[in-house]
Simulated scan of single mutants.
Amino acid sequence: MMKCVEEGHSIVALANATPPATLKKEEMDSYLFQTVGQTFVPYIAECMGLPLYQQEIQGSAIYQELEYNETSGDETEDLYKLIKRVLVDHPDISGVSVGAILSSYQANRVSHVCKRLGLEMHAYLWQREQKELFEEMLSSDLEAVIIKVAGIGLKQSDLMKSLGEMRTKLFSLNEKYGSHICGEGGEYETFTLNCPLFKKKIRVTDWSSVVHSDDIFDPVCFAKIEKVILEDK
């Protein structure tokens, strides 16, 4: 979104696909969406002073080919419904911003939805060199913390560390194992606490860790954020 603003676009709304309330757990299997940390996405909208549109994820990854074809019951159709709802209230929007860097699977699905709705997909991070992009994020006053780890060399103890704190380790894992520095291989997921687009900043005051797999080399665990407060900048 920061790149969109740099390119002269105005952000008018945020759209978020969220796990169904009946799931009663924070993380769900999805090829398309990040679900960890979803409970606190409304605080991001509040920090930006923008309306938030949310759509429960009812589908699953039924059509798993790289190039997407419209498929009933696929989770991509939940994205279509979500963006279509935004268009009802904001018929003048011309595009959708997506943070995809390397995932053609994700980018192709967002592009497919945008074409069906007559919108442009803005993917300003697409295929950027990851070391350069990571350094750019650190220098742009973006404050994000790791809330899920699922890659070799990453541990439960890395949860809730900032990208700045993780820089040396992420670069080292890239050199040793070819891990994606920006997490594009699913190595980690993040939650943004502050950036230049925020009018307020988020501070996490309570969280707990959840372990999905305690594999000694490749553990999967995430931070369940329990409570946050908004602070003036």
Rank of each mutant, 00 (worst) to 15 (best):
F33E: 02
E136T: 11
I229A: 06
E6C: 09
Q38Y: 11
Y43M: 00
L82A: 03
A100Y: 00
N174Y: 12
Q127N: 14
R167W: 04
E46R: 12
S209W: 00
L173Y: 03
Q38V: 00
E231N: 07
F217C: 11
V86W: 00
K84F: 10
S94T: 14
M2E: 15
M28F: 02
V210Q: 09
I202G: 02
P19H: 08
E143K: 13
D158G: 05
T192D: 05
S104T: 12
Q58P: 00
Y68D: 07
M48N: 06
T76H: 09
S140L: 10
I93T: 06
I83A: 04
L197E: 12
K25Q: 12
E27H: 09
Q58G: 15
L79F: 13
L142M: 12
K84P: 03
F134E: 02
G178E: 06
E75Q: 05
L230N: 05
E175G: 08
D89F: 05
S111E: 14
M160A: 02
H180Y: 13
V12G: 04
E187N: 04
E226Y: 02
T168A: 14
Q38C: 12
Q34V: 10
L119V: 08
N108V: 07
L102Y: 14
S104M: 12
I83V: 15
T76K: 06
L23N: 03
L32Y: 10
K131L: 11
K169L: 09
